[in-house]
Nucleic acid binder design. Structure first.
Lengths: 160, 160
DNA sequence: CCTCGTTCGACAACCAGGTTTACCGTTTGG
DNA sequence: CCAAACGGTAAACCTGGTTGTCGAACGAGG
């Protein structure tokens, strides 16, 4: 009760909420903008997947390993991506079992736009907080986050 | 190329990853600890739901509104919570349509333990970063996060 | 050269969580 | 007093996962 000014005690439960809200607002803004730029169907999970496919393409099994899910789940994701025109499967001449998943030009475009938009969003934060302070936040998070949590399998985690 | 020291340029895509990783590591640690303290079955989504039920109880419809999902989805969540012994339904004497969902003592315990654990986890971060710096991170996030993103419907958002 | 183990892709059945649509019973207000 | 609004439930379906199983293709050994 001593200092009603300047947000008193910080409670433990606020921290995860703030982090999540920050993540969420970035992702929401990204997808809003992405939708206006010709990619209305992209969902957060697809972003992770396309990132994992990359410009060289991967097999479904390898994609599963990168995303931390089973090859079956990865295969289903590729199906949806393919249905939306973001990826396609092509047989591999060398190994008749393999089918390489590759991003279509449309997929590559979505990825490139996302990267640019993330830069813009970060710049907005920097405008509010100052580059200095934003940097401090990033550095702090990097110090406190175990690198084991720093992977590309967000989609899998979310679905628990 | 001027300063290879001190983590060069920060890229836009790192920010959401850092925020998510931070959130994720807190939630993972919470549930690991929770499991060791007699609540192995609790999943992140249940945490949101139990928080929304609160100590007074709510109807399924109201729960749905709080969580940002349909009443049907809320009802299913209550089913799972009830199956695990964290919540129970009771008829309301006044309005024969209503069935109030209440936390069981076990549910209340899970909620209380979670709150305590979140305090512990925040304290760990404070030990690494310093209370000062952690506070700066929290304040920065609060400034930059639109309060509209600061809701209790995380579960619904995750499932897209 | 042929077989054995491993890998890749696909299929089926299932679970968690969400959505629509639809219906029934209760409560309430014009 | 009756119709509209509200609470609960159920069915069918979607997205993302999971196991388990299977056949086809590769690769290393005998």
């Amino acid at each position: 009760m001593a200092e009603p000014e300047r947000a008193g005690e910080r409670h433990g439960f606020e921290l995860p909420l703030l982090l999540f809200a920050g993540f969420r607002s970035l992702i929401d803004q990204l997808h809003t903008e992405l939708a206006e730029r010709g990619h209305p169907g992209v969902r957060p999970a697809y972003g992770f997947a396309m990132q994992a496919i990359g410009r060289d393409g991967v097999t479904a099994s390898e994609l599963g390993r990168r995303l931390g899910v089973t090859k079956q789940a990865a295969g289903k994701t590729v199906d949806r991506l393919a249905a939306l025109g973001y990826a396609e499967r092509a047989g591999d001449g060398v190994d008749a079992r393999r089918k390489v998943v590759r991003l279509t030009p449309r997929g590559v475009d979505a990825l490139a736009q996302s990267a640019a938009l993330f830069e813009d969003l970060r710049a907005e934060w920097a405008a509010t907080l100052g580059e200095e302070r934003l940097r401090e936040v990033e550095d702090a998070l990097e110090r406190v986050v175990p690198k084991s949590a720093f992977r590309l399998d967000g989609g899998a985690w979310l679905a628990g």
